[in-house]
Design a protein around this nucleic acid. Structure first.
Lengths: 203, 203, 203, 203
DNA sequence: AATGAATGAGATTTCATTCAT
DNA sequence: AATGAATGAAATCTCATTCAT
């Protein structure tokens, strides 16, 4: 199955179509779920013809893959930015940055995030996405090592998964207060990692 | 979309078919994912005719819904069992029981558990399942209240979601050592809840 | 296709099942139309098992055929009764009897009558039903001949068809007043046949 | 049950497919009856793929509904044309036009006409078709009122139904002589309405 | 005689994808 | 580059009928 975009749009008009297709697919995913996502519908919602859609994407999966790729690349970038200066700053500061990146990322479009996690989990992943996921984990692990923790790879996986689960659930429940969620994320992370004086919940 | 079983089997022979259909669907889900789950295949794997399948289930979704219902009911039961004596025993003991229930539940068939968690990406969750989920959370919240914590509903949701995420990821990564996972789950839970001396990770 | 009843019920219990099946089919026909008529449903409505249904009727068509046969046989009998003494009584009297038979017959269960006409028209008819239909027409033709009319076969067919159409439409429109319909039927018949002083409509 | 066309064809190529589907369905109806009408067969006879059929019609019933709609619309138009100048011409002339429209309409494809009359045995008649039927009756009633008759609505219904029945039966019996049938239709109509010197049948 | 679980042919319907314009 | 009509494999689903109990 071909899952790479057929061609990258260069002309302005083409770029508009391309983005409209991705956005339409995302919207349908959120509003109606995977089962209702079909190429004809995507084209319709995007306001392009089905022929045009296939000019840019060789298959339905390619659309999904591209959405995931973009989203994961964005997260990786955020994580890299958050950890860029970790050597120079204290652990607390970097952790804060990381958590902020995670919460911000997932709370932007909570339902879409969840859908993509599902796709990520269930669809045959392309290599590039796997690599992006690995890079994210690796970056977090590097931070944990820097923080003096052992078994950093395992911890990173546990931590990222637990945070994802928690933020996910909060997002699905309709929470939108980033700061509140950030606070609880901090407790989860520090508590699990045994970092510093994790203030008693409720204080 | 009809998602309730058409009829509940009464004769023994019928029960066998009914269960075989559910089991076959679960197997296919695990082995091949949602996309490959189709009624023809389910009937084939179950060893019944497609007609028999439709005697009991009005749609593919109804099969999925019933699997989820059963699985959630099982978890609820486990949680109730774990918390049955919480008034009489210390918090640590009950927590241990709860975590054991969660880990055991999810590690039994990790991939199935994961699939079902994401089922709402593919299936409009029905009231009954929502109610079961709520009952599980409520039970956990009752325990947290008993443990002296405030905001127990929120904590319960966070905790369950975080644990689920972590165990999920571990299961997907191929971990099968329940005890190890139980240990980390304990750290996660105690750390987040601010309960007792969460031993430093790695000890 | 076998369309004759498999066996005629002799025991009382059997007779009850047999009749219940026919009645159930008639009811479904009226309430839901041909498309919704299926053997499983007939059995259910009749309160017998599908197995029992097939004890008595070799096929779905056999049920329909039997309903039509009964109904046509009844009409034939009514027509014969109406014309029994035509040699001894005047034309007007016999005509009145005939029309009364027709209106009464069709207005008893108008929707069923219509359905059966449809079945009669559209399904492959069994010989016996064709014979019954022919016998009815022949009897009417005999009367018309007796009334001094030429081309009686053609007239009979025209007349019966026209009356059927009119009564049918009245029944479907919800008319239930037999006498009013009888009056209009008389006008139609006498007018078409050129019989006697057809009183001006509306008088 | 969806019974409206999915989309109306705009391109010439599409129009050809669309019409071919309707024509094929009509042919099958006539040649084999409702029972044998299935979408696979319609597509095959129409020379289009099953996919194309479903582009235009969401269901088998929608095809039928569209055939009926067209046919009724055609009849309404014929009736309107026949009565257009009724104010200026004598009653006999208009009646003749009306009868000619009716006979011509129904004798063109007698079996199809019969099938469609009974369509409501098989199809929930939609509002639009009911409205067309009502409009036809209303037009006839207007004429009858113009002809000086009372209770024109009732008369119109009776008359149209009776004529339909008679012409139907004639068509089924294989009659093709329009003029002969027109003559008998005239007798039926004039006889029932009490109009003018209905010449004795057989003259 | 009655039951009802089971069957499977065949119908309906969807949707990813192609291709002529 | 864009269009959208057309395709058909594959899925969903129905229902007449059989047969073991």
């Amino acid at each position: 199955m071909r899952i790479n975009p057929r061609k990258t749009p260069t002309q302005a008009r083409a770029r508009v179509s391309y983005d409209a297709i991705l956005e339409a697919a995302a919207r349908i995913l959120v509003a109606e779920g995977f089962d209702r996502l079909n190429t004809n519908r995507v084209a319709e919602v995007a306001g392009v013809s089905i022929g045009t859609l296939y000019q840019y994407f060789p298959s339905k999966e390619a659309i999904l893959a591209e959405i995931i790729r973009r989203e994961r690349a964005q997260l990786l970038e955020d994580v890299q930015t958050a950890t860029r200066d970790m050597a120079a700053e204290d652990v607390e500061t970097t952790l804060e940055r990381l958590l902020r990146a995670a919460v911000g990322h997932q709370l932007r479009r909570p339902k879409l995030a969840r859908m993509l996690e599902y796709a990520d989990a269930v669809l045959p992943l392309e290599e590039e996405t796997k690599a992006l996921n690995a890079a994210i984990l690796q970056r977090v692990a590097a931070f944990l090592t820097h923080a003096g923790l052992e078994d950093a790879d395992l911890l990173a996986r546990d931590l990222v998964a637990a945070l994802r689960g928690m933020i996910d659930a909060a997002g699905m429940a309709g929470e939108t207060d980033q700061e509140a969620l950030l606070l609880r994320s901090g407790r989860l992370a520090r508590g699990y990692l045994g970092l510093g004086p994790s203030p008693a919940v409720g204080d």
